[in-house]
Design a protein around this nucleic acid. Structure first.
Lengths: 131, 131
DNA sequence: TCTTAGATTTAGAATTAATCTAATTAAAAC
DNA sequence: GTTTTAATTAGATTAATTCTAAATCTAAGA
């Protein structure tokens, strides 16, 4: 059903590559649209969008919150273990499990996450004093 | 430091391919060894093992708890979206990001997760009445 | 073997993301 | 406009994980 709240969430996520948490979405919308949505509705809407395949939910090791990605085309993620920044990567190949390794599973989706340090945090590590 | 509690956790994880949660580890040890360890120590020990590279922590979309895998050699995971079962898969190739796509990241680890239905849950879906 | 300093364990409290509940409000069908 | 159904919401609830501070162990040196 079309509601202002759902439109707000949809609009906020459209072309958003920051992989926000539910609370970040809530905070951003609340600031911009002056309180048109509650946190519960953000969760409800994300759950709905997920069911419809409009958003991917990302659970990432070492990050405490679920993150949401409106880009549902195949891609991997680079995650900074220091600042938590997440960026998209389009891999120039597809990763598929050979049939004989599937152990009877019917595979329907996949996540590929790479962990490391982003450029900014690499610098910080080299020059801690520069902070 | 060598303690009975840490040994318990280590032994429980050795060759364990069930990807248990912290609580599952705690429950299993408590039952077998009759209370030699507290839940806090299980968490402490897992955190230590993680730091030492003896265990991998898995955050998996749709599963609410972190899971632990003592198999730290490169491999992917198949995850059943219905019952939550996780099994290891050794891929016959390595997945690496081309240098020009790394966006300055220093990559140190990776997770590859495939989501779908395990054989048992595929059957359940076909024959719901057979339940 | 005894002592002791430092590390480990622990119960229970605290934190907090996410879910649930039940009442209010809004949407859309007619 | 009325009615029916779905959506929103504040606040309570749940539960994984972390924190705290006190008690207990470990291991190495005397």
């Amino acid at each position: 059903m079309k509601t202002p709240q759902r439109n707000s969430v949809l609009n906020y996520l459209k072309n958003n590559t920051s992989h926000p948490t539910a609370r970040e979405i809530y905070d951003a919308i609340s600031k911009k649209d002056d309180g048109v949505v509650s946190l519960a509705t953000v969760y409800n809407t994300l759950s709905l969008m997920k069911k419809k395949g409009l958003v991917r939910e990302l659970a990432i090791t070492d990050l405490d919150y679920k993150r949401y990605d409106p880009n549902v085309s195949p891609h991997a993620h680079l995650i900074c273990g220091d600042c938590g920044k997440i960026v998209d990567v389009r891999l120039p190949f597809t990763v598929e499990i050979p049939e004989e390794q599937k152990q009877g599973f019917d595979i329907r989706a996949g996540d590929i996450h790479f962990y490391g340090l982003c450029p900014a945090c690499r610098n910080k590590e080299k020059n801690p004093a520069a902070q």
